[in-house]
């Protein structure tokens, strides 16, 4: 899911990454709406709110919203910073570090919310800031490593693309185009996963409360570990294959001599 980059990624890689991360984004967004009455996985609405509050001279809200938008941007900046600067050293860790940082942010929200949160406005603002930064990290990372084909924290672009693709499918030549069909499959997977995450969060929040963030962290850990696991298996298989080749070569040499 994480160690492949750009055009080397298969549809299956993108679908696995897209479905798991959009599921968590859906959960985070609904949880933040229920708890804090504000969204945390997209910023389009905040641009409109920023303008409206600016006109109404509500400067406190202007600054709060500006910092949220900026933190989402900062998250995306940070995620791609790791990808751009660390990929030559170790591609897996360059892709995994933003995710680790995201897990840390969301775990911090979960721990603080569960054990220390007194529902003051300042606490709400800081917890939402952490969540928007985390969502910026996630969106930046998935978009960056998938050559902009996996964006998981908001569905505006996905809905637009689906509309375009579905209209194209009214022509047989496009319907038979595997690339377009794969794109539609990927987007539909992301949309369904996001929606499922949102429904799961909305229906279980009452029981889990802030512990819901630990569930999200667990899913993200699965994304991290899945790759470590597959890399280990691939390495093991590679070593086994090489050993077998050496053994066969040795056997042949022995036979010839």
């Amino acid at each position: 899911m994480l160690h492949k980059y750009s055009n080397n990624r298969t549809l299956a890689d993108n679908m696995r990454l897209g479905s798991l991360t959009s599921f968590t984004a859906g959960m985070i967004n609904v949880a933040s709406f229920i708890i804090f009455l504000s969204f945390s996985s997209n910023v389009t609405g905040y641009f409109a709110i920023f303008a409206a509050e600016l006109v109404r001279a509500n400067y406190y809200q202007v600054l709060v919203v500006a910092s949220w938008i900026f933190l989402f941007f900062f998250g995306s900046f940070f995620a791609n910073l790791f990808v751009v600067h660390l990929s030559e050293w170790n591609r897996y860790w360059a892709h995994a570090l933003p995710l680790l940082l995201e897990i840390f942010c969301l775990a911090a929200v979960g721990v603080y919310g569960q054990y220390f949160y007194k529902e003051t406005l300042v606490e709400t603002e800081y917890l939402l800031s952490l969540m928007l930064f985390a969502m910026g990290l996630q969106n930046g990372l998935t978009a960056s490593i998938s050559n902009f084909s996996v964006k998981t924290t908001h569905l505006t672009g996905a809905t637009t693309d689906l509309g375009i693709l579905f209209s194209m499918f009214t022509k047989k030549q496009f319907w038979n185009n595997i690339e377009l069909r794969n794109k539609a499959k990927l987007i539909l997977t992301i949309v369904i996963s996001y929606l499922s995450g949102a429904v799961v969060a909305a229906s279980t929040y009452r029981y889990f409360q802030f512990k819901l963030f630990f569930v999200v962290c667990f899913i993200l850990v699965v994304v991290l570990v899945y790759d470590l696991y597959t890399i280990k298996i691939l390495k093991y298989l590679d070593v086994a294959k090489r050993r077998k080749a050496v053994h066969t070569a040795e056997k042949l040499i022995a036979e010839n001599s």
Binding site: Y59, L63, S67, V122
Partner: peptide, 24 residues
């Protein structure tokens, strides 16, 4: 340079907020 600039913007916004009345 970029990282410092972004952190500076964040600190500036946080400082500005202290000078604006809080709804609470």
């Amino acid at each position: 340079g970029f990282t410092l600039l972004l952190i500076a913007i964040l600190v500036m916004v946080a400082q500005l907020k202290k000078h604006v009345p809080n709804p609470e």
